[in-house]
Design a protein around this nucleic acid. Structure first.
Lengths: 409, 409
DNA sequence: AGCATTTTCTTCATTGCTCGAAAAAAGGAA
DNA sequence: TTCCTTTTTTCGAGCAATGAAGAAAATGCT
């Protein structure tokens, strides 16, 4: 619902505009800030002065580029120490935990593997709390001001957003993950769906994508997808999907989730191996496929082995029909494939494209461009980092009140 | 991209807020307007005074309800004559054209049937121009100020939004529809996808749906769907889909669009008849199914005829799997079925629900509520009417400048 | 009829924001 | 030193929202 605008709203909006411009462009002089935001020099002076006074921004050293003529510009930048945030990336077999400062620099990071039954022993929330405690103790100087904790997860969230009602990570279902962490550290704590972050982060890594709508597909031990669709006049509307568990064939292959015919059951690592080795597709999938086993199959297929090639064709067909079904609802112009399965793209390309050709939308609008980005962890981290910092910018720092002006006594 | 806020922006925002509140609630006194908008009484006085001065709003007669104690409130309302708009509903076999005033009242309306080959004779744009001309000549007093023309269509729009790149209406493909009309009448002219309007209009007709995300499905000579998903802090993000041409079964039944396996090929009227009468599903579909023929099949099925029941089961299965696939991407909590096929809902219900049960998302989140609304034309018209008027409110009338204040000479 | 009461609406002075123009600051070049 | 260029700040004007006080328009009570 649209709401009333007053002077306070104007302050928030323009402070937020300055912060988001710095977030995207990095440090800028006041003059360039005025140009980039569209605000007048006078307003920039006022706003930046206030933000510096509140220790949200800092002034850099005046630096005259070679052969400069006039007064050297002074850049303003984020004050690293304004606050800190913790970013947790929870994966099926790994957990990474990063302490970052307000400028986005990683201060410290820990990473450990997860046993398959990890969370039958320790509650996920307690596990995360312990990880964060460790980071705090290793970084005493920064420990005081963790203002945000963001956790990347896979699965389906409940309406509160604090609990996973379903997750491919074992023993996570129904456990409140965010609430205990939030309570323990007294900082806003949020769960973020990995697929959505992947799409947003990919946009950050490929600036040439600009404002086009994109879908990012992860192919590995699961199949996941996120969307980043620019809305008119706003931030891109981003969404995670349960693409991996979209039905491909009614009453089809058994999926890890217990359902039949999911895309994942054909295109995730376990699905491809099952097909390749002729295991009946109603046999319950292995709990974990070693990365080496999957890679070996990719290599076999690349040397032309029939059964391996066939398995990747089946996988490509499932993904292709899934994309064609997606395209009837959303219209990403670019699709980015990532994860271990991205290295098998050449093996799946023809069956993906064949499936897309069988859809009306592709025939009419032309097929979307398909790109491959092998590493999936960096876009996820970058997406989450940007998400966290921009939220802090807008919700905390843009809204801080100014010193009340002294009334003339 | 977020943009700078200044006094002008505040004016637009708050004028827009007043107009949108009146649009939703109908005429209101200034005091109630203040309560509903959150603006102060003083601001409401100023804004409404200015809007009245610009002949956008009018004051009603003071009316004291029975037993009222104080000064009777005087309502402000839209000035009917502030401007007019034309709403065109283009269907496969009918065209309806309505002249409406700024308060949303229908001033005049024409409706004619379309021959199947109508647009091989006359260009669609010329046809529409002629229809609008007729309305203008019948309503001379109002003819001067048509400020917006909105056309409801089915199909896939090109990026300009002026042309249908594909449409179930014959001979429409590739013809610029909006541009010639816009040029002829000098008024903003826009094409709107019928599915999206259906979803938005349904929300208007069922206020109890509130802010829940909904999907509206049309089942008839085509299968179409629109989404209305409330975004955080804004208008519901609405989208049309090509649901009817989402693939149901790879290499399946032949669809009117020329592709194989579309949902429509199983669930549109021609698909159901084809199945019921045992016609091979690769036989090209009939160009038009008489409404009576479809209704007769519905009646036969309700009396228990095997082949008819079977056909509706197949149709329900296609729709159910389509919905289950949709649910992996968007999460409408309510699904509204409309169109002629809605009267066959009881025949399809069990197979729709069976298909939904086979999906992970439904198992985890529970199945969406499915509602039936038999009439589809009213929600489409209401959705389009509201869309047009709100656009006029915000883009034209909220942005009109105020009289410049005299400077003291 | 006259006056108090109630509710609606308007007026007024204040506040807080942006903006353009002019002035100040901070360097290099002549 | 003086001039020139570029960046940044200062200053007054303009605009819109606001709370408080006042005006307006009706009813009810004596």
């Amino acid at each position: 619902m649209r709401s009333v605008a007053d002077a306070d709203f104007v302050r928030r909006q323009n402070r937020g505009l300055v912060l988001s411009t710095l977030r995207r462009h990095g440090p800028l002089s006041r003059t360039r800030l005025a140009g980039a935001t569209g605000l007048s020099h006078a307003s920039i002076t006022g706003i930046s002065g206030e933000l510096i006074g509140q220790s949200i921004l800092v002034e850099g050293e005046p630096q005259a580029p070679a052969g400069a003529r006039g007064r050297p510009p002074v850049e303003v930048a984020f004050n690293r120490h304004a606050c800190y945030a913790v970013i947790v990336e929870l994966d099926v077999n790994r957990a990474r935990c990063s302490l970052v400062d307000y400028a986005g620099t990683i201060v410290d990071r820990t990473e450990i593997s997860l046993a398959p039954n990890q969370f039958s022993q320790v509650k996920p929330a307690d596990f995360i709390i312990e990880r964060i405690e460790q980071l705090r103790q290793r970084n005493v100087a920064e420990q005081t001001s963790i203002r945000s904790i963001a956790i990347s997860v896979q699965g389906i969230l409940d309406p509160t957003g604090d609990t996973l009602t379903w997750s491919p990570i074992a023993h996570m279902n129904g456990q409140s993950v965010a609430a205990p962490v939030r309570e323990r550290f007294g900082a806003p704590t949020t769960l973020h769906k990995r697929g959505r972050l992947l799409a947003q982060g990919t946009r950050l890594l490929y600036p040439e994508l600009g404002e086009t709508p994109i879908a990012a597909v992860f192919i590995g031990s699961t199949v996941a997808m996120g969307l980043s669709i620019p809305a008119r006049g706003g931030h891109p509307e981003a969404g995670a999907t349960e693409f991996g568990h979209m039905n491909h064939l009614p009453d089809g292959a058994l999926c890890r989730c217990g359902m039949k015919g999911c895309i994942e059951a054909y295109a995730a690592d376990y699905g491809v191996l099952r097909t390749a080795y002729g295991v009946p597709d109603r046999v319950p999938p292995a709990a974990l496929v070693p990365a080496a086993a999957y890679q070996e199959l990719v290599n076999l297929a690349k040397t032309g082995r029939r059964n391996a090639l066939h398995a990747f064709n089946i996988a490509g067909r499932a993904i292709g029909f899934g994309l064609s079904r997606l395209l009837t609802i959303a219209s990403p112009s670019h699709i980015i494939l990532t994860g271990p399965g991205a290295s098998a793209y050449e093996l799946m390309q023809s069956s993906i494209e064949a499936a897309l050709r069988e859809s009306l939308v592709c025939k009419v609008n032309g097929p979307p461009a398909i790109m491959v980005h092998h590493d999936e962890r960096e876009p996820i981290f970058q997406g989450l980092l940007m998400d966290v910092l921009e939220t802090l910018d807008q919700t905390v720092f843009a809204t801080m009140a100014s010193e009340p002006r002294l009334s003339r006594a």
